[in-house]
């Protein structure tokens, strides 16, 4: 679409900018200030230079949390994306069943995040939970509060439970948008199911899938509430993701300076990923308008 150049359009954007800036820029400036100072409360601050950044960069605590974040994001992407596509492919294209399926599938998305944690706590505790109790009585040595691997499996299962539906809904909407003519052509050519998927459905889903992957990556990268409720970051520090560590530092120990320094580094990583996200999406839009706007 050809847009006209008009700087008066700024006036329509000003309220958004003001509202978001109030909650984004003022806190961010404050965080930068905190990151270079130490405090003992009462709004008294002492300049400490880059001490907090040195602590952060030279200890393993931050990098361990970062590694956990990356590992977690990779695992859930590797599970949720193929699973989501598979489920979307198996959904019928129309009929009352689809509506029922979609409503039921969307349900986990609307549950408050700490309740998601609670649900999985109630579900997988070995004393009161269906999953925990069943596994233990089957002879497995399962205990997500003590065993690192069990904790990870439970958190991954929780995330798959919580968010796969998003991938399903996105892929499904991409699939529905494919005109029936493509399938008829494939049938006439005698294309196999795999060939149809590989050469018709997958390319047509590329747009929504890119967005699904990037969104799931971003959201899993900032995960906080669900594992916080479920494991509290334990056993040990094995499920302490960056957000959890940050909040522990800031609110739990009230170490404003180190927490602020960590916030900034975290924010820089997010900015980098977000920039990649934005570039990919805008280039995709551009490519689409060039090829005749197949939305």
């Amino acid at each position: 679409m050809n847009k006209t150049w008009n700087n008066k359009a700024w006036w329509m954007v000003v309220p958004v900018v003001l509202l978001v800036a109030f909650s984004a820029i003022i806190p961010l400036m404050t965080v930068v200030n905190y990151a270079f100072q130490d405090t003992f409360g009462n709004n008294e601050f002492y300049w400490v230079g880059i001490e907090w950044f040195e602590d952060l960069m030279e200890s393993d605590r931050f990098f361990d949390a970062l590694q956990r974040n990356i590992l977690f994001s990779c695992i859930i992407l590797a599970i949720e994306v193929p699973l989501g596509i598979m489920i979307a492919l198996s959904l019928p294209k129309s009929g009352w069943k689809v509506n029922v399926y979609l409503v039921l599938m969307a349900l986990p998305l609307l549950i408050p995040w700490n309740v998601v944690g609670t649900i999985w706590q109630v579900f997988s505790r070995t004393d009161i939970g269906l999953l925990g109790n069943t596994l233990v009585s089957l002879g497995f040595d399962y205990n997500y509060t003590r065993d690192v691997l069990d904790a990870w499996i439970t958190i991954v299962a929780m995330d798959v439970w919580h968010w796969t539906s998003l991938v399903v809904l996105l892929s499904y909407s991409g699939l529905v948008a494919i005109p029936e003519a493509y399938f008829q052509a494939a049938r006439i050519d005698g294309a196999s199911k795999w060939a149809t998927f590989r050469y018709i459905q997958l390319p047509k889903m590329r747009g929504v899938l890119t967005i699904a992957i990037l969104l799931r990556f971003m959201d899993s990268f900032k995960i906080y509430t669900e594992p916080m409720v479920l494991t509290g970051g334990g056993p040990g520090n094995s499920t302490t993701f960056m957000s959890i560590d940050l909040v522990k530092m800031a609110i739990g120990q009230f170490d404003l300076g180190p927490a602020a320094a960590m916030s900034l580094v975290y924010f820089m990583i997010i900015l980098l990923i977000c920039y990649a996200f934005f570039t990919v999406v805008t280039n995709m839009d551009k490519a689409e308008t060039k090829t005749g706007g197949a939305s």
Partner: peptide, 9 residues
């Protein structure tokens, strides 16, 4: 004052 401004920042 809670913003704790310093000159370098």
């Amino acid at each position: 004052s809670w913003m704790a401004w310093t000159t370098p920042v």
